[in-house]
Amino acid sequence: MSKKLDYLDALEAEAIYILREVAGQFDRPALLFSGGKDSICLVHLALKAFRPGKFPFPLVHVDTGHNFQEALDYRDNLAKAIGEKLIVRKVEDTIKTKKLQDAKGKFPSRNGLQTYTLLDVIEEFEFDACIGGARRDEEKARAKERIFSVRDEFGQWDPKMQRPELWNIYNGKINKGENVRVFPISNWTELDVWNYIKREKIELPSIYFTHERECVVTEHGQLMCTNKFLQLDGNEEVVIKKVRYRTVGDMTCTAAVESEAYKIEDIINEIKEAKISERGATRMDDRVSEAAMEDRKKSGYF
């Protein structure tokens, strides 16, 4: 009797299996790429799943206009380096054409508006499956979502009508107009992702590592880097800190954490010691209510 696979090998094998199921079951899949560590891992896994062939899907980025430049540069360089197609659609354009109300407030998050652009790009290219880097350990509503998560014509998730998902048999059959969101790294935790990045020597945008930044302190004590998108009133406490990002989302809703970590090993140690969860530490968008994520998912978000 030989030993079971190492846990990272097991997680990797599961993710590759899921990616290949997407390729086998769908006509027009897409990989949603944000420039964050989780979607960077997805691209790495796709290389393992499909090389020496081309990806059976393009990379799609919904650009909120509030992204970190480092993440955008990384995105463009990566697409070029691997020679795969990149489709970018901008929330800015959706706001104009659909005459939407832009986000307001001190920290104007376009998180909700992003869903419009996402649904539009799905319709434009008739995508039937969208691969995303969401993980179940991130948030309690995500913990309940299937790996193949069926969305109706409006992109909505219905948690009470989910298909049973057994063994590793994935049912991706849908009607025209519906789409499936696929989450190959559902079973990975934040720490697993970092251990995998370390093992595979995956390069990341520089903002994941320590750097000096001017930040304002929010009422919850979070550090938001000063940038042109924030609507500050001038009464905020401004500090210069050594920080890094634990997640890379929009500059308007992602907080930095104080850190001296400049190597992946340091980051791994920090996470092991961390007393606050990934989204709790960095996301303002989940603080709205207990069911913030569940509600966003129901309306078509990831």
Binding site: R136, D137, K140, A143, K144, N187
Partner: peptide
């Protein structure tokens, strides 16, 4: 519904 939870010790995930 089924919820998935994760934890890791020094010995296992």
């Amino acid at each position: 519904d089924v919820a998935y939870k994760y934890f890791t010790t020094d010995k296992r995930k």
